[in-house]
Nucleic acid binder design. Structure first.
Lengths: 160, 160
DNA sequence: GCAGTTGTTGCAACTTTTTGCAATAGCATT
DNA sequence: AATGCTATTGCAAAAAGTTGCAACAACTGC
């Protein structure tokens, strides 16, 4: 077998230690949520995470999940942005910092790479000293397909 | 007396007609909300609007307000974006299309002028054919003051 | 001015998330 | 292994919106 890399092969293995290092605790409920998150790709809403946790442990309490998500966000293990309807969309272990765009027509979503947002970030930094949280950036509008087929006017559709 | 301008001196006076032109109706409940909106500057949440309507008419029903806001948004009379916590923030009669920035430290908010977002809008249009809805754009991060005093790291604070 | 059409309202139930608080249970220490 | 400190949990209630549906009432046409 291989040697274990210095900083742990699986980043999830570091979580209990990082919690304890801050005086926080590693509980069964947190173990459940972490297991769910480890199996998650892309975006998930809080409600979806609650549901998935309940699938693993029917005794799951929503408020515990939401509070744990707050803790994990402080540790940088998850990040959240807001979907079309403003609902929180969680994002696991962000490899590269990026934002999101949402099409209000087809409800599709895509990543916005850092370089695409670089100009906005730079302008706000220079003109206002504002530091943009890129992972929280959600840009809403119409994707190519929806912009084409719909009226050339504006989009008024709302997410359901 | 003066001549009335072709397109009505007060834009609010046009609303009943624009509703009827679409086969929609001008009701007392809508009159109340419009009166509240006419007296509103800057941002308001849906809940605040419900409260203000209730001040004028205690019989106000929340769902009626929210549904009317949807209609008014389709007419372009209000627009909404999302605040720090994802809650809807309505914006009356947008003179110039603009976005918003929110400081997750002090909860302050400022307008983002179209030219500040121009580069982002242009990049997404060119690279993806995506049409950004600028009035829906909410950029979160730390303002100059909060970025300075806090740790140079990241912001983890959440709106209450 | 009356009647019909159908857009709106009021209501109740439900979803999603937050908050306060007492009871529970991690974890470091002894 | 027992103990204490206090972070977490579970629960219940509340806030903010949304949705389905039957009853109501604008507006159009006659």
């Amino acid at each position: 077998m291989r040697e274990t890399p210095p900083t742990a092969a699986d980043p999830w293995d570091e979580v209990p230690g990082r919690l304890r290092a801050r005086g926080l605790r590693w509980t069964p409920q947190r173990r459940t949520l972490l297991a769910v998150l480890a199996a998650t790709r892309g975006h998930v809403t809080g409600a979806e995470l609650v549901e998935r946790c309940r699938a693993m442990d029917p005794a799951t309490i929503p408020s515990t999940v939401y509070r744990t998500l707050d803790v994990l966000e402080e540790l940088g293990i998850v990040r959240h942005a807001h979907g079309l309807d403003g609902r929180e969309e969680f994002h696991v272990l962000p490899a590269a910092d990026h934002g999101h765009i949402w099409c209000s027509g087809c409800l599709g979503t895509w990543d916005v790479h850092a370089d695409e947002a670089a100009a906005l970030v730079a302008v706000l930094a220079q003109r206002r000293g504002f530091r943009v949280d890129l992972s929280h950036l959600s840009v809403v509008g119409l994707c190519e397909g929806c912009a084409g087929e719909g009226q050339p006017g504006r989009e008024a559709q709302r997410a359901g």
